[in-house]
Amino acid sequence: MTIRCEIVSQDRMVYEDDVDIVVLPGEDGEMGVLPHHAPVLSTLRLGVIKVRKGGEEHVFTVTGGLVDIQPDVVTVLADAAENVDEIDIARAEEARQRAQDILEQSKSEGDMDTYLAMEAALRRSTLRLDVANRYRAGRGRVQRGEEPGEPR
């Protein structure tokens, strides 16, 4: 028994397959979705979507959005989503650094709009880095000595 999982971001189809379980960062906490789940419509928080199919596990970052759960299909409408294997670590690091710099600058200048925008940007790039480091090397095993904090 499988459930159809579709992850779309605003500019493309990210993932589509029949899977065993989907774990989502729901508004009220993590949700594990198995086949024959009751219909749920929920917003998503910044976080990680895990999809398991047979022995494989796929991990995606998501920056928020919406999920439509039907008994046999889960549709994730993400603001932005990315497969962990696609994350470019160098670029993510660069983006984090840039966000950090602008954040410091706007804090000293008291520019509230920029501050909030950059704070969100910083959270996003930190999440991507954490997740990439955590799941890419050794698929699911945490590397010794660098247990990443909860990505928030």
């Binding site: 579709e6 508004e27 219909p39 917003t43 039907q70 046999d72 299909v73």
Partner: peptide
């Protein structure tokens, strides 16, 4: 997507909403 629940008829159950509807 071919869905025995959605295709052709009304869904059998109403949604649950998180947070509120």
């Amino acid at each position: 997507v071919a869905s025995e629940y959605a295709a052709g008829g009304e869904s059998k159950a109403a949604y649950e909403y998180e947070p509120g509807e």
